[in-house]
């Protein structure tokens, strides 16, 4: 199995506060990998290093290495703008840009100078279809994205990320504010998407991790406690902490 992302002894701290305490983990290509753990476990920070969005946080200190396709992305030489095209991200709260649905999806492609009408339109359409949103919005692509419901907005954000044509999609608790039906639609989309993309899903919802991921990692206080196939982690966890978390004894 191909390793898409590998972190080695990754440490992160904000000032004196240690967030990640030496995390080594492999993310496999064309799989959905779930990162779970209680608040403050460092799982969200971990994925924000993977596309260098961590750069926008103040006084973050990182050590260790992160490889994507064998290339160290913490290297000063890396072009982080290019990296973010390869590694897309969907945030916990859906944040549509204040403009039309079409212009939201086209935001990334236009930055790459993909302006030609037909090519752009088909990319937008394809992205919306992949995010299971096309049927709901195809008649009103020019209306404001702010008018969509929360669940639709989050799928819009997914479609917008897909329009970058990335290799990896990072999702940071994408369903935390959504109703069960919207959540189901996103999960359905992710299941299809893993054929083409490598997906990392951060979630507090252990049931969701169990439902749709292939691999699951459990983090606690900045340390990777357990990592394996989802089946193994959920049916026969080797650590007591993992078991307690999955059973809802804390979290």
């Amino acid at each position: 199995m191909d390793i898409k992302i590998r972190t080695e002894e990754l440490r992160l701290s904000f000032g004196k506060r240690e967030i990640l305490k030496g995390v080594t983990v492999d993310v496999y290509k064309n799989k959905i990998t779930g990162f779970m753990g209680p608040a403050g476990s460092g799982k969200s920070s971990l994925i924000s290093i993977m596309n260098r969005m961590i750069d926008f946080e103040e006084n973050a200190t990182i050590s260790g290495r992160v490889f994507i396709d064998g290339e160290d992305i913490l290297d000063g030489e890396i072009d982080e703008v290019h990296l973010r095209r390869r590694v897309g991200m969907v945030f916990a709260v859906p944040i549509p840009l204040p403009r039309s649905i079409f212009d939201n999806i086209a935001y990334g492609p236009r930055l790459k100078n993909k302006n030609s009408g037909r090519e752009l339109r088909s990319l937008v359409q394809e992205s919306l279809k992949k995010a299971f949103l096309w049927d709901e919005v195809k008649d009103r692509l020019n209306s404001s994205a702010l008018k969509l419901s929360g669940g639709q907005q989050q799928r819009l954000c997914l479609a917008r990320t897909l329009a970058l044509e990335p290799e990896i999609i990072l999702l940071d608790e994408p369903c935390s504010g959504l109703d069960p039906i919207s959540t189901a639609k996103i999960e359905e989309a992710l299941n299809e998407l893993k054929k083409e993309y490598t997906i990392v899903l951060v979630s507090n919802n252990t049931k969701q991790i169990a439902r749709i991921t292939d691999y699951a990692a459990f983090f606690y206080m900045g340390t990777l406690i357990e990592y394996g196939t989802t089946e193994k982690v959920f049916t026969n966890p080797s650590e007591r902490k993992t078991e307690d978390y999955i059973q809802g004894k804390f979290g």
Partner: peptide, 25 residues
């Protein structure tokens, strides 16, 4: 700030973020 963060995550540079997101808003 969220709008800026989203813009960066969609591979915009600082200048692109300023001209396409910050100034219109």
């Amino acid at each position: 700030r969220n709008l800026r963060i989203v813009s960066y995550s969609l591979s915009a540079t600082k200048w692109e973020t300023v001209t396409k997101v910050v100034l219109p808003s």
